[in-house]
Nucleic acid binder design. Structure first.
Lengths: 111, 111
DNA sequence: TTATATAGTATCCTTTTGTATACCATTAGT
DNA sequence: ACTAATGGTATACAAAAGGATACTATATAA
């Protein structure tokens, strides 16, 4: 998702937000991280469909946008924990609004 | 945006919602339609960066997802009006959450 | 007669996104 | 000596999304 036009009009904040959370797995990742700190491979188990490469990519992008924190423990085997930043936590209402609507939407689709 | 995995886990409703509103121009389009019924070329003027082809595509997808209504007037020159469906209106809280966060996010980026 | 406005299609191309697969270092366990 | 677990990276490829441009029909206005 690439929407770089911030200089258009009133509706653009919507696009600005979607640009940040619209990556293929970002929604689920943020959703999980909103409830707890999670290690890399734990995330993979929570989201079995995602490939390692994609998960890494999405996490890096979220980190670059300052939404999540990445903490590396100098251990062997490696240990890396991901958590929401304070800034990222401001997304909570958005994620919950998406989740609520998505839940109803899925039900409607089945019916 | 293509996230077709609905059968994964708890976080998926978030992705289900993003799948529906995550197209490049869908956010702005929905935002505008939430406040009024708009003709095709009016939308183009509201969103000058979008090409005709992309606008048509996004509108068709939104229509296929039952979020918007398309009303054609049998006139020449053509007149086509787009408006939110009742179902689409249930997206209002989501769009507003996105807009509120996006507004703050843009301010933060500038600072 | 020519231009303008409407709401689009059709075709081709580029960019972005996502997948598959193999590979790496280190340590603990068997 | 071999295996598994950790959290990745590198390379190659396929698919999806988006963009640029040209084209259409019809009626009205200049």
């Amino acid at each position: 998702m690439t929407h770089a036009r911030y200089d258009c009009n009133e509706g653009c904040p919507v696009e600005a937000a979607l640009e940040v959370i619209g990556g293929k797995w970002k929604g689920i990742v943020l959703y999980h991280l909103l409830s707890e700190t999670i290690r890399f491979n734990e995330l993979r188990r929570l989201i079995p469909e995602v490939t390692q490469r994609m998960l890494t990519k999405q996490l890096r992008e979220l980190e670059a946008d300052k939404l999540i924190l990445r903490k590396v423990y100098p251990e062997v085997p490696p240990k890396v924990e991901y958590s929401m930043s304070e800034y990222g936590k401001t997304l909570a209402p958005v994620i919950h609004a998406l989740k609520d609507w998505g839940t109803k939407h899925k039900q409607k689709q089945k019916a």
